[in-house]
Simulated scan of single mutants.
Amino acid sequence: MKFLVKIFLILFVFSGLAHAKQCIFEELDGYDNSQKFDLENYNKLVKKNTRIDVNKHGNKVENQPLGNGEYRQFITILDTPYLVEKRYDANGSLYSFSRHIHDMEFGKSKSYDKKTGTLTIYDMDKDYKFSLCDLIKKMESEYSINIEDKHTLYKLSRIIDEEKSNRPIYSVVVHVNPNPNIPIFEFKVDGTTGEILKIGYGDYGLDNVVEASP
């Protein structure tokens, strides 16, 4: 099995030329509490029996009523695993903002309290000196794997290894290629140094993952 892992890794590395790139999320819209929920447009969508729209950038915008006049938006960034979540109060004002890649929240999530005028910032990356952008560039340059491609990234998560002094770890699960019949790979990466700790492969449930050297 280890031999098969190495063969697949060779295919990864030589499957295409790695290229310098900006991380897509660096270009995502930031938090601006002057933003307003477009209730008029939402009502037009409801009349069409949908709550889903496409914005000027081609990104899918899903609108959800939360009750008490509040709304939530999920904005899926075109052809990527990125998603932006926004929440608006009963007056249509933006009060909460967060960014996600697949199911993993990252960056600075922000929440605005209109009553006190307080903006609270939650740094989701504070325990990870090896940043998400560092991880994206490492996977691209060393393995020719673009984890900003929604067809490549299967799952991305952060883990705290309590047995190793609470070491932060990324778990990166990717498709070998878009063919669903081919196994997926898991890379475990040190969230402080960027060291590859483990590479394994298995089925979609990651059963029988085996250790392998990079």
Results as ranks from 00 to 15, higher is better:
L9N: 05
N181Y: 13
K114N: 09
D127V: 07
F106V: 07
K110T: 05
D149G: 05
N179S: 10
I196F: 02
K129T: 15
S109G: 12
Q73H: 04
Y154F: 12
D29M: 05
S34R: 06
E27G: 10
E163D: 15
D203K: 05
K6P: 00
T76H: 14
F3Q: 10
Y112D: 00
K47E: 12
L28F: 10
L206H: 01
R51Q: 14
S15C: 10
I184W: 02
L135F: 03
F25T: 03
N181F: 11
N43V: 09
Y112S: 04
A20T: 14
S144E: 11
G107P: 05
R51D: 14
F106G: 02
I160K: 04
A20H: 08
C133D: 12
Y82T: 02
S165Y: 12
Q35N: 14
Y122D: 09
I147T: 04
D149A: 07
C23G: 11
P65I: 00
L66Y: 08
K114C: 08
D190T: 04
N179D: 15
N181K: 15
L66A: 09
D38S: 10
N179E: 06
Q64K: 15
L153D: 03
H175S: 06
G92K: 01
A18T: 13
G92Q: 04
I160V: 11
V210C: 01
K114R: 12
D161L: 05
F14R: 09
Y95S: 01
E211F: 11
Q22T: 14
E163Y: 08
H102M: 13
L119S: 05
T80N: 08
N208F: 08
L156Y: 02
L206R: 03
N181I: 08
T152F: 00
S98M: 11
V209P: 01
E140R: 08
Q22K: 12
I199M: 01
K60A: 13
T76K: 15
N33K: 13
A18N: 02
I77R: 07
M124W: 07
N177C: 09
E26R: 12
N41W: 12
A212W: 03
F130D: 02
L28G: 01
C23Q: 06
Y143W: 07
K114M: 11
I199Y: 07
L4E: 11
I77W: 00
D190N: 10
D29W: 06
Y201E: 04
F187K: 03
I147E: 01
A20V: 11
V209C: 00
E40Y: 15
D125K: 06
S131Q: 14
D134S: 03
V84R: 03
V61R: 02
L4C: 04
A20K: 14
L206V: 02
G194T: 00
A20M: 10
H102Q: 15
L153G: 01
L78H: 12
K21F: 07
L206Q: 05
D79E: 15
N33Y: 07
S15N: 13
M1Y: 04
G205W: 00
D123P: 05
S15R: 10
E62F: 05
S157W: 11
S15M: 09
V209G: 00
R167H: 02
Y88H: 07
S96G: 10
V46S: 11
Y31H: 04
D123V: 13
V84G: 06
I169Q: 06
E211H: 13
P180K: 08
T120H: 09
S15L: 08
N41D: 15
